[in-house]
């Protein structure tokens, strides 16, 4: 690269048209430095997988894939399996999605289509963003002291009236899978509504006008044009929320009851998730138990990895160009 040849003659006398070696070296070094950190992110991600896998290795050798299909977690006999935790992780996340997806999309619609004047809309958007900022452990404590006492009579009524349905077949004991699912729903709601709202807002106004111009009502336009156009973004957002729900630790640990086995299909059973198991046992564990916990962490890592890669794929592959 040469210096700009249009320098005014009054400028300081130039040594040469070529930049100094130090100057060019600095530019190169700068590129290398930033590049090193850029690749560093990939290294960190790989590092997480490698370090956790290394620590999990003894348990992987001992239990193999049977670890994922056994629900025996027995520190006395030193035999471990995480089926119960896998079940808890998936079921609580599923409950959370069932609650949060319709409500989250409803909010997103309410806040993206012009139902409200900006003066009301903006604070509302902000409040829902704050919902995402409240620390997980605070939700957990609130869950223990407020949500569970509030849910108890409802759960008891459901059990007494509809106990014949397997989902409600056990007597609620306070904490349980249902409470964890509801807490998770509250926590992922802002993710779903924020990402869905972005996707809805990105649908161009001219498409809306075309639909109104054909004599469609507002909701016909929303359901038949806008949601289909924003679909990949919404689904991607739901997948990201699912990943978050599966990995969420503190709130779940506080309200799920931390039972290490699957007693029945009832959502009022106490249970545990992989994350809650780690939170409860890691600091005091050693030997094969610790290694098994690491194996659990590795399973959780790959579970969320799959969900998040899928989310990325959906968002990139199915996004619509206008």
């Amino acid at each position: 690269m040469t210096m700009n040849p249009d320098m005014p003659p009054s400028a300081a006398p130039m040594q040469s048209w070529r930049r100094s070696d130090t100057d060019r070296f600095l530019d190169k070094a700068f590129l290398w430095l930033t590049g090193a950190f850029g690749y560093g992110v990939i290294a960190v991600l790989l590092g997480i997988a490698v370090q956790v896998a290394k620590a999990a290795w003894p348990a992987i050798q001992q239990f193999g894939l049977g670890f994922l299909t056994s629900q025996r977690w027995d520190p006395v006999q030193n035999v471990y399996g995480v089926l119960a935790q896998l079940y808890g992780t998936l079921v609580t996340a599923l409950i959370a999605l069932l609650i949060a997806v319709p409500i989250g999309i409803g909010i997103a619609l309410f806040l993206s289509e012009d139902f409200l004047p900006d003066a009301v809309k903006r604070p509302l958007v902000f409040m829902i963003e704050l919902l995402a900022a409240v620390p997980s452990v605070v939700y957990g404590v609130w869950g223990v002291y407020v949500l569970i006492p509030f849910l108890n009579p409802i759960a008891r009524w459901l059990n007494q009236s509809f106990g014949w349905i397997p989902l409600f077949s056990s007597a609620p004991a306070g904490p349980g899978i249902h409470a964890a699912g509801i807490i998770l729903a509250i926590m992922i709601l802002p993710i779903i509504s924020a990402i869905s709202r972005d996707a809805l807002v990105a649908v161009p106004g001219k498409i809306r006008q075309a639909s109104y111009g054909l004599g469609a009502t507002r909701w016909e336009t929303i359901f038949k044009v806008i949601i289909p156009a924003a679909f990949s973004g919404i689904v991607g957002g739901i997948m990201l929320a699912l990943g978050r729900a599966m990995g969420e630790t503190m709130a779940v640990t506080l309200v799920i009851g931390n039972s290490n086995r699957i007693s029945s299909a009832s959502i009022f059973d106490q249970g545990s998730t992989i994350a809650s198991l780690l939170a409860n046992q890691f600091a005091e564990a050693g030997g094969l138990q610790l290694s098994s916990l690491m194996y659990g962490a590795l399973s959780l890592f790959f579970l969320t990895l799959i969900v998040n890669v899928l989310a990325e794929y959906i968002i990139r592959r199915f996004s619509i160009k206008y």
């Binding site: 161009p204 001219k206 498409i207 006008q209 075309a210 639909s211 109104y212 111009g213 054909l214 004599g215 469609a216 016909e220 038949k224 044009v225 289909p228 156009a229 619509i320 206008y322």
Partner: peptide, 29 residues
């Protein structure tokens, strides 16, 4: 009103749907 008085806009604004579904959209409604 908009059903009986149609509109064509400055920017072409087909829906991100198939050609068939673009036409069928209004009648289906």
């Amino acid at each position: 009103v908009r059903r009986q008085i149609g509109m064509v806009f400055q920017q072409p604004n087909p829906f991100p749907k198939t050609i068939y579904d673009n036409i069928a959209y209004g009648p289906r409604l």
